[in-house]
Write a protein that binds this DNA or RNA. Structure first.
Lengths: 111, 111
DNA sequence: ATTATATGAAACCAGATGGTTCTATGTCAA
DNA sequence: TTGACATAGAACCATCTGGTTTCATATAAT
């Protein structure tokens, strides 16, 4: 596992456990053991998830003594944001249309 | 396949082929055959991807004659946007910090 | 020095995923 | 009504994924 560039941001955040890990790391840096304590699965499983996240460069880990401390690296999420921004026009349009319909109906009701 | 709620937005967009399909449907409604013509894989494979997307409610399909026409339903992407918005503060902070460091260094250089 | 702690890494496993081919069904056109 | 077209669905397959257990190694503490 953890071959360079094997996982991209989209794959990395597809798993709910990994999203939880990101959320934990958003609060503060944590060791693998500390992260594991929040889940109902083995340390090894969490370590694998961390490898995937590190592969997508969403986290980075540095050894401190015998611990490995992971921290959030949110930059790759900008790729996701860019991807999303393309679609915002569509749901904005839909909401605008909906708003128009609703308001029009409202006007009609008052007649 | 296509059991209700089996796939969420995060999983649906994890696959690059599915993201391409979404992009195609953003331009206009299309039949399965039409979508397939843009890829180097079987119609059945594309149909499966469409089922996943439909399960996540990112697309919807209606039968018209012997064709099934799929169209984009961007609303579920708002969930993704909300998820993302939580992390925006972090990368904004990082950029702010970086800006601060760079500018500070610049000032020091002038001394 | 010995022991406990924290992680790394390998081997293994079941189920999910992404693709295929083949067959069946419904619709349009001649 | 016959044939071509568009899709549906089943069966199958290889690989990936997300988990496990086990063993090894490095550091900390007594």
């Amino acid at each position: 596992m953890s071959a360079a560039e094997k996982y991209d941001v989209f794959q990395a955040i597809a798993d709910p456990t990994r999203r939880e890990v990101l959320h934990l790391l958003a609060a503060k840096e944590r060791s693998i053991a500390e992260i594991t304590s929040h889940f109902n699965m083995s340390r090894t499983a969490i370590a694998k998830h961390l490898h995937v996240l590190a592969d997508a460069e969403l986290v980075s880990g540095t050894k401190v003594g015998r611990e490995k401390i992971y921290s959030l690296q949110p930059e790759p999420l900008t790729e996701l944001k860019q991807w999303l921004s393309f679609y915002e026009q569509f749901w904005n349009n839909k909401l605008t249309k909906l708003k128009y319909v609703v308001e029009n109906q409202f006007e009609k009701d008052k007649e």
